[in-house]
């Protein structure tokens, strides 16, 4: 397990390779569809600092509010490919060092990772309780009323958040590899049918 503390510089991110397992510590922010649209089309001033050298987590959590503030109850990753139209711009404009989600992303994001020194980290889908427990504190939330709880931008402090590098900053993607291999295998089966 490679420890990553946020904010992180380009150099340790460049060292990461597909297949590396990481544990993330520090402050990150959740963002899904509405947030990505907002970050690209508007200024995003309130989250610029935390995104610089930071990480975006594709997640729409189940939250609970008490006297002690907000708490993450269930918080696994959501499908990342919906953010493909926006992510390359977000990485470039905000200096994001990693995107955490599930399912991987496409060519444009892979190219942006290579150009700007960023990686895609895959969290295990449905690992909602374990990942929510790695969120030690909810610092603040942006756009809660406008976007609703799942789509709001939650600023969270995490400790040993587990993820796997599936797209690195050197153009490698585990997703592209698995797609190629499985497509070839399917074609062989179809030829027999």
């Amino acid at each position: 397990m490679i420890r990553i503390d946020l904010p992180v510089a380009e150099e340790p991110i460049r060292k990461l390779k597909v297949g590396d397992e990481v544990g993330v510590y520090g402050v990150m922010i959740t963002a899904r569809d509405a947030a990505h649209k907002y970050l690209v089309e508007e200024d995003g001033a309130e989250v610029r600092e935390v995104l610089q050298g930071g990480m975006i987590y594709h997640c729409g959590p189940v939250v609970r509010q008490s006297d002690a503030g907000w708490q993450f109850v269930a918080a696994g990753p959501t499908t990342s490919k919906r953010e493909e139209p926006y992510e390359a711009e977000v990485i470039a404009q905000y200096g994001v060092r990693a995107v955490i989600g599930k399912g991987g992303m496409g060519e444009r994001t892979l190219a942006a990772c290579k150009e700007h020194g960023a990686v895609y980290l895959h969290a295990i889908g449905g690992l909602a309780v374990i990942l929510a427990r790695s969120v030690r504190k909810v610092r603040e939330v942006h756009k809660l009323d406008e976007f609703g709880a799942p789509e709001a931008m939650w600023v969270i402090e995490v400790e040993n958040f587990p993820a796997i590098v599936t797209m690195d900053s050197h153009g490698n993607s585990l997703h592209a590899e698995v797609l190629k291999n499985s497509t070839e295998r399917a074609q062989k089966l179809l030829a027999q049918w």
């Binding site: 189940v62 109850v73 696994g76 295990i124 889908g125 449905g126 690992l127 909602a128």
Partner: peptide, 14 residues
């Protein structure tokens, strides 16, 4: 995760 969800009565998936 399934075990922790069951024991703590929290949603398996968000």
């Amino acid at each position: 995760n399934a075990q922790e969800a069951r024991e703590s009565s929290m949603p398996i998936c968000q």
